[in-house]
C-alpha cells in the first residue's frame, strides 16, 4: 500500500530529524564562550568568595564540562533518550521537572491559540475570497497586514497597559492565586487567557487568512471549476464542496509551521506577560548559561513542532488521495 509506505517513511524521517535536532541543540547551547563553571565562579568571586585554580578544575570535572564536545554530546543524548535531561544548575532541579511544570501551560495555550486561529481565519478567508475586490475584502486585507506587522511583544505591552487602565490591575500571569478551584477562579483564568491568546494568535490568524484567501482565489481559476460549473453545479456547492475541500489540504499541511509560529509568539509574549510557560524560563536559562535547561527547552519545543508536523503529514495522507503527489510536491 502506498499509504502505509508513506506513513512509515514519514515516521522514520521524523525520528531522523529529531536526532539531527539534538545535535544542533547541543551545538547551539555549547556555543557561548566559557561554560557554566565560569559563570558560577564569576558569581562566587562577585560575592566575595575566593576560588583557586584547583577548585575550578575540580568543579569542571565535577560538572563534566572539561570533556571533548562529542563525548559531552553523546552523554547528553543518551540522557535525553533515557529520560535524564540533566540538572539545571540555576534552579538546582532536574530539567525534566522544570519542563514538566511549564509544559502543560505551554501546550494548553498553544492548543487554545491554534483553535482560535483556525476558527477565525477560515471563515474570514472564505468570506474575503468570495468578495474579492469589494470593500470588505480590502478592509480585512488591510487589517490582516496590520496584524502581521505588529510585533508580538509590543501588542502584549499595549494590551497589558489597556487592561491596566480599564480594570485597574494589569492582566498578567495565567493562573489565579490558589489555582482553579471555583467558578470565580475559572472565570479569572479565562480573563487572563484573553490577552495572551489574542497576542499569540494575531499574526498566525492574519497570515492564515491571507494564504487561505489566495488559495481559494487560485482554486477558482482551476479548469475543473469551469467544468463543474458547466455541469450545472451551483456556486455555493462549488465553494463548499470543491474549493474548501481543496484548500483543506494546504491548511493541514501548514499545521507544522503554524505550531512553530505559535511557539515563536508565545515565547516572547510569555516573557512580557510573565506567563508560567517555557518562554521566561528559557530566557533566564540562556542568560545564566544554564545549558542543560536551555537545551532541554529548545529540545522540547522542537519535539512538539516535529510531532505537529508528523500529525499534519499523517492527516494529509488520510485526506489526499494522491499521496505520491504530496511527496513530489514536498
Amino acid at each position: 500500500m502506498d499509504k502505509w509506505r508513506y506513513i512509515a517513511k514519514r515516521l522514520v524521517l521524523s525520528l531522523f530529524t529529531l536526532l539531527m535536532i539534538t545535535f544542533v541543540v547541543f551545538f547551539v547551547i555549547q556555543l557561548p564562550p566559557g561554560d557554566f563553571v565560569d559563570t558560577l565562579v564569576e558569581s562566587m568571586v562577585a560575592q566575595g568568595e575566593r576560588v583557586t585554580e584547583q577548585e575550578i578544575i575540580q568543579l569542571k570535572a565535577m560538572y563534566g564540562v572539561d570533556r571533548p564536545f562529542i563525548v559531552q554530546y553523546l552523554d547528553w543524548l543518551s540522557g535525553i533518550l533515557t529520560g535524564d535531561w540533566g540538572v539545571s544548575y540555576f534552579y538546582n532541579k532536574s530539567v525534566i521537572s522544570i519542563i514538566g511544570e511549564t509544559l502543560w501551560p505551554t501546550i494548553m495555550i498553544s492548543l487554545i491559540t491554534l483553535f482560535i486561529t483556525y476558527a477565525i481565519s477560515i471563515p474570514v478567508a472564505i468570506y474575503t475570497a468570495k468578495h474579492q475586490y469589494q470593500l470588505s475584502d480590502y478592509i480585512f486585507t488591510f487589517l490582516g497586514f496590520v496584524g502581521m506587522a505588529v510585533p508580538h511583544f509590543l501588542l502584549a505591552i499595549l494590551l497589558m497597559y489597556l487592561s491596566f487602565k480599564w480594570f485597574g490591575t494589569p492582566l498578567m500571569g495565567l493562573f489565579p492565586e490558589g489555582g482553579i478551584v471555583s467558578w470565580a477562579s475559572f472565570l479569572e483564568f479565562l480573563k487572563r487567557l484573553i490577552i495572551p491568546v489574542i497576542v499569540i494568535s494575531l499574526s498566525g490568524t492574519c497570515g492564515l487568512i491571507r494564504s487561505i484567501r489566495a488559495q481559494m482565489l487560485d482554486e477558482q481559476e482551476r479548469p475543473y471549476v469551469l467544468c463543474t460549473r458547466a455541469r450545472g453545479v451551483s456556486e455555493k456547492k462549488l465553494t463548499y464542496k470543491y474549493q474548501m475541500r481543496a484548500v483543506l489540504n494546504p491548511i493541514v499541511a501548514g499545521l507544522g509551521p503554524m505550531i512553530a509560529g505559535i511557539f515563536n509568539g508565545s515565547t516572547i509574549t510569555a516573557i512580557v506577560l510573565m506567563l508560567p510557560t517555557q518562554g521566561p524560563v528559557l530566557l533566564k536559562a540562556l542568560r545564566a548559561q544554564d545549558v542543560y535547561l536551555s537545551g532541554g527547552i529548545l529540545m522540547i519545543s522542537a519535539i512538539l513542532v516535529v510531532v505537529g508536523t508528523l500529525i499534519s503529514d499523517l492527516l494529509l495522507a488520510v485526506l489526499d488521495p494522491r499521496v505520491k503527489y504530496i511527496e513530489e510536491s514536498k
Binding site: 531522523f16 544542533v24 512553530a260
Partner: peptide, 20 residues
Amino acid sequence: RIIEVFLSFPTLPLWMALSA
C-alpha cells in the same frame, strides 16, 4: 533533510539561544 531540521525549530527560541 538539513532544511527540514532548520524548519522544525521555532525560530524565536533558536534566535534567542544563538543571540545569547
